[in-house]
Amino acid sequence: MSASLVETVDVNAPVSVSWSLWSDVTRWPKFLSHVRRVDRLDGQRFAWQLEIPGADKNFVAELTEVVPEDRIAWHTVDGVDHAGVVTFHRLTDTTSRVTLQIEYDPKGFIEHLGALTNLDSALANYDLGEFQKLAETAAAS
């Protein structure tokens, strides 16, 4: 069984600010609540450590597409099975829309439960809210 989620947030910050926060994966733990750390292995691959209620996960993800101020796509090459893309849309000179889409294969009861109860969606929504605060603070300074 495969699951997917799509979450969108509008940010009072230009695309350039939203992009700069997302394009530096080492900053993701600041706004992705379940990410403990991300380490760059090489130009395309990153080692992730997740803290998920009931289970910690480690995996390696590889960037599959990076288009500045437009999109970042990735898929896992080791560990949990998922792929995602985050896209950036200019609304005005000072506002942007960020859309996160993830496709994954929930393995194990905890992840099945999350997919069934929309916990994943709630977590993604919370994380995009944290990202929004970080981007708007950066844009204001």
Results as ranks from 00 to 15, higher is better:
Val25Ala: 14
Trp19Cys: 02
Gly43Lys: 10
His89Phe: 08
Lys107Glu: 15
Thr94Ile: 04
Pro53Phe: 07
Thr137Val: 11
Val25Trp: 14
Gly54Glu: 08
Ser141Ala: 13
Trp28Gly: 05
Pro68Phe: 01
Ala3Lys: 10
Val11Glu: 05
Ala135Gln: 00
Ala139Phe: 01
Ile52Ala: 07
Thr76Val: 05
Ala122Cys: 02
Phe59Val: 02
Ala73Ile: 04
Thr137Cys: 05
Glu62Tyr: 07
Thr99Leu: 02
Asp105Ser: 11
Met1Pro: 11
Ala73His: 07
Ala135Thr: 00
Ser4Gln: 13
Leu123Gln: 12
Asp81Ile: 15
Met1Lys: 10
Met1Glu: 08
Tyr126Ala: 10
Gly79Pro: 09
Val98Tyr: 01
Ala3Cys: 08
Leu21His: 05
Val38Ser: 07
His112Thr: 13
Val60Glu: 00
Asp10Thr: 13
Pro53Ala: 09
Val60Leu: 02
Asp81Glu: 15
Asn118Arg: 06
Asp105Gln: 14
Val9Glu: 01
Arg71Thr: 12
Glu103Leu: 14
Ser4His: 08
Val60Cys: 02
Ile72Arg: 12
Gly54Trp: 12
Lys107His: 14
His75Cys: 12
Phe109Cys: 05
Gly114His: 02
Trp28Arg: 02
Thr8Phe: 00
Gln132Ala: 08
Phe88Ser: 00
Asn125Gln: 12
Gly43Pro: 10
Ala83Thr: 04
Trp19Phe: 03
Val67Gly: 07
Val86Ala: 05
Asp105Ile: 13
His89Pro: 06
Leu91His: 02
His112Cys: 08
Arg40Cys: 11
Ala73Gly: 05
Gly129Tyr: 01
Pro29Gly: 02
Ala138Trp: 07
Gln101Asn: 11
Leu50Met: 07
Leu50Ala: 04
His82Trp: 13
Val85Met: 11
Thr95Met: 06
Thr117Leu: 10
Ala115Asn: 11
Ala3Val: 04
Asp105Asn: 13
Glu111Pro: 04
Ala140Gly: 03
Asp24Arg: 10
Asp78Ile: 03
Phe31Cys: 04
Ser23Leu: 02
Leu123Ile: 14
Ser141Glu: 13
Asn118Gln: 12
Val15Arg: 00
Pro106Phe: 13
Phe46Gln: 06
Ser16Val: 10
Val67Lys: 15
Trp48Ile: 06
Leu91Ser: 03
Ala61Arg: 02
Ala122Asp: 05
Leu113Asn: 06
Gly79Met: 03
Thr117Ser: 15
Val60Pro: 08
Asn12Arg: 08
Ala61Ser: 15
Ala122Ser: 11
Leu21Lys: 00
Glu103Ser: 13
Val35Trp: 04
Asn118Phe: 14
Ser4Ile: 04
Arg37Asn: 14
Ala13Gly: 01
Ala138Cys: 06
Gly84Pro: 04
Val38Cys: 12
Gln49Leu: 09
Lys30Met: 11
Lys57Ile: 10
Ala140Ser: 15
Ala115Phe: 13
Thr87Gly: 04
Glu7Asp: 09
